[in-house]
Write a protein that binds this DNA or RNA. Structure first.
Length: 279
DNA sequence: AACGCATACAACCGCGAACGT
DNA sequence: CACGTTCGCGGTTGTATGCGT
């Protein structure tokens, strides 16, 4: 079977997205929801392939995205998750609300990789690069910045309140690098996880934090949650996002759709009010 | 001020998985 | 079961920006 090229049509635009294109895509998604991506460009009046639209939406336009550099704790979480999951960026991203796989991947390649290397840690295996034959804690490759040892890089541990549930798929996928902090003891990731409330929490809550919340239009749901996702943070992000949209000139969006979205999503707070407040 | 290099991030590409017929 | 289509993922590239000389 021949693979169908993604962008087989002539005249399909590539390269950076313009504000106008963003506007069209946002408008379309907000009014119609995420449906067949292949059809999106046609229906939205874009000269892009569906793949490009999906990427633009998920990596940049999605209103629930955080912007800016990863925080220290997020970075540490990424490191820990990478030690367990390897380069499965989507899985890692699923556990960092508001962050995309692309963003995390980029951050890993540009920041964390370097940081770990500097510290004398192999970013792939998460083992010390020059495996010390002695028990010394310092390696010759570590520079003079007095970086913390791997154990110290572990993220702060939140209180765990939920009781254990069935393990998720990652639990059984052992093909990825299993070495982790304190790996020299031969502790498996599972063992490690048991000792790590944060990781337990993350693994047990395998449900993506965000995906469900943008499957609108949806039927109104009670309260301030959608599919058990707390919408408060989402609303806040939406409001921030709408603020960003000021760059496009609010009126051009046809903001009626935003109010509709607010209703559809069962939000108690009118996002536009939040925008007004922020302004 | 101008140039070259380094860095960060957006976007593209190709592959495989999942799903429908 | 085979085939076709669509989607999502991970690797890679392109480009804008920052910084040092």
């Amino acid at each position: 079977m021949g693979r169908q090229p993604c962008c087989d049509k002539l005249g399909v635009k590539k390269g950076p997205w313009t504000a106008e294109e963003d506007k069209k895509l946002i408008n379309f998604i907000l009014t119609n929801g995420q449906c067949c991506w292949r059809a999106v460009p046609k229906l939205a009046g874009l000269l892009r392939c569906g793949k490009s639209c999906r990427l633009r939406w998920t990596n940049y336009l999605r209103p629930d995205l955080k912007r800016g550099l990863l925080t220290e704790s997020e970075e540490q979480l990424v490191i820990d998750l990478h030690a367990r999951l390897g380069n499965r960026w989507s899985k890692i991203a699923a556990r960092l609300p508001g962050r995309t796989d692309n963003e995390i991947k980029n951050h890993w390649n540009t920041h964390i990789k370097k940081k770990l290397t500097k510290m004398g840690i192999d970013p792939v295996t998460h083992e010390p690069i020059n495996k010390p034959s002695t028990t010394t804690n310092t390696t010759s490759t570590v520079d003079d910045h007095h970086q913390p040892e791997p154990e110290q890089l572990r993220p702060p541990l939140p209180q765990k309140t939920e009781e254990s549930q069935a393990t998720s798929e990652e639990n059984s996928s052992s093909s990825q690098p299993e070495t982790c902090w304190g790996a020299e003891s031969g502790s498996s990731s599972d063992n490690n996880r048991e000792d790590d409330p944060l990781m337990n929490f993350l693994w047990e809550n395998d449900t993506p934090f965000l995906d469900a919340s943008w499957d609108f239009p949806v039927t109104p749901s009670a309260g301030n949650t959608i599919n058990n996702v707390d919408m408060s943070a989402c609303e806040e992000n939406c409001a921030n996002w709408l603020l960003d949209c000021q760059d496009f000139s609010v009126e051009e969006f046809g903001f009626g759709c935003f109010n509709d979205v607010g209703v559809d999503m069962g939000m108690n707070i009118n996002m536009m009010d939040m925008v007004d407040e922020k302004l």
